[in-house]
Design a protein around this nucleic acid. Structure first.
Lengths: 128, 128
DNA sequence: CGCATAGCCGACTTATTAAGTAGGAATAGA
DNA sequence: TCTATTCCTACTTAATAAGTCGGCTATGCG
């Protein structure tokens, strides 16, 4: 479960939005709360918005908020947006003696995907 | 579960050794069987030997073999040698709302480590 | 209107790591 | 001595990650 800084930041930013009271949260506030470089965060929020996970509004009192209730957004949703769909080849076709290794990777991946797809930000905010 | 080519090759090479009849297996044979660039494989086998996982002998009829029976070598053993001990900080100290994320990573890592530490090359060779 | 506060956006830079290569020395057996 | 093989350090090259930069655009308020 390698996690890039970008993905990590994205998950933390969404957590912050999930925990905030209704209404726009400015990027600056998220950056401060989660210790994320401001410019970099802009970049990430943009990506989340384009994917439809969050909404935004400009101007004073502007900011970001979740597009859906926190109960309906999973960790997997965010990860997929940032890292793209996991490649399903990669470990395809191990020759000879190594063949069965593929089954191990498949088992690991399945468990990982299930946990990430079952955990919502409502749970995260609630302390899980 | 990100897997570098180096680690992947190492696991496949050890699988090949585990499947071979007793006696030295030349790197060339492993490279051919597992489609691994020869020079790169040399490099990896050297690392495995220095870690004590495999033994070697030079000259004609030389090659590599497992230092212990395949029942006693796990996937985790090889991975640790190649990638080093997983860093246990990294996800330390999530501020504010993101705090509970740490528990998710911990759960994932634990499951992953357990599976890798329980699977031996004897099982791999046997088809698991 | 005009100003302040925010988001929007593409391009750029820099550091690190991954993946593989090169060249040759040492050793074992025939 | 010849040949097959391991041993070892260092190098190169490409990709990715992480973050920066500069400036534009929209919104609300007085």
């Amino acid at each position: 479960m390698r996690l890039s800084a970008r993905t990590d930041y994205a998950l933390r930013a969404v957590s912050e939005l999930a925990a905030a009271p209704p209404g726009p949260v400015p990027a600056e506030r998220i950056a401060t709360a989660q210790q994320i470089p401001r410019r970099f965060l802009d970049n990430i929020l943009l990506q989340l918005r384009r994917a439809g996970l969050i909404h935004s509004m400009r101007g004073p009192e502007g900011g970001y908020w979740l597009a859906r209730p926190a109960e309906e957004i999973t960790l997997a949703d965010v990860i997929v947006v940032i890292e793209g769909r996991p490649e399903f080849q990669g470990h395809g076709g191990y020759p000879g003696a190594a063949g069965p290794l593929a089954a191990v990777w498949a088992a690991l991946r399945e468990h990982e995907e299930r946990l990430l797809a079952e955990t919502t930000f409502a749970q995260i905010v609630a302390g899980r």
